[in-house]
């Protein structure tokens, strides 16, 4: 794992519980204690009602590909062996959207609205990334 050359996320005050959850195999997203809104990316206030009272709730990990893009250009040298690769905008069942990669599928086979589920990819002792693979209809 020490040969992982791609950029590694740096947890912030806002996102630390998110990365800790991933390390433990859970996809946690913030849920507002006042209005019940789920949101993403992490922040210390609900962007819907501005309440600071929130909890980290496990997402089902299920969602769909809202849209995607096939990267052909190498923006970072560690991706040079990987182009073309897919970056997808995943819409979770709970509502929030997040950017991720799709695995176990060829770029040409990706479609909008395709159901997907989360998989956890450990890239270093202290870091796990959420990725998504095609899922059967649920």
């Amino acid at each position: 794992m020490s040969n992982y050359k791609k950029p590694v996320p740096i947890p912030s005050v806002e996102s630390k519980p998110y990365w800790t959850g991933l390390k433990e195999g859970r996809l946690l997203i913030p849920k507002c204690g006042e209005c019940g809104n789920f949101w993403f990316p992490p922040s210390l206030h609900c962007p819907h009602c501005n309440a600071a009272n929130f909890s980290w709730e496990p997402s089902s990990g299920r969602g769909k590909v809202f849209s995607y893009v096939v990267f052909h250009r190498v923006y970072h040298p560690a991706f040079s062996e990987e182009v073309p690769y897919v970056v997808a905008l995943i819409e979770l069942e709970e509502g929030p959207r997040l950017i991720s990669n799709l695995v176990e599928i060829k770029p040409d086979d990706v479609q909008c609205e395709m159901p997907v589920s989360v998989v956890f990819e450990k890239i270093a002792n202290n870091m796990t990334l959420p990725k998504f693979r095609p899922a059967p209809l649920y």
């Binding site: 849209s67 250009r73 923006y75 950017i99």
Partner: peptide
Amino acid sequence: DWEVTQGMVMPALYAMRANRYMHE
């Protein structure tokens, strides 16, 4: 920006719109 730190670039942002528009 959260998505920018993850590598989002302007062509990708618009390409996602294009793929969604083509889908719909």
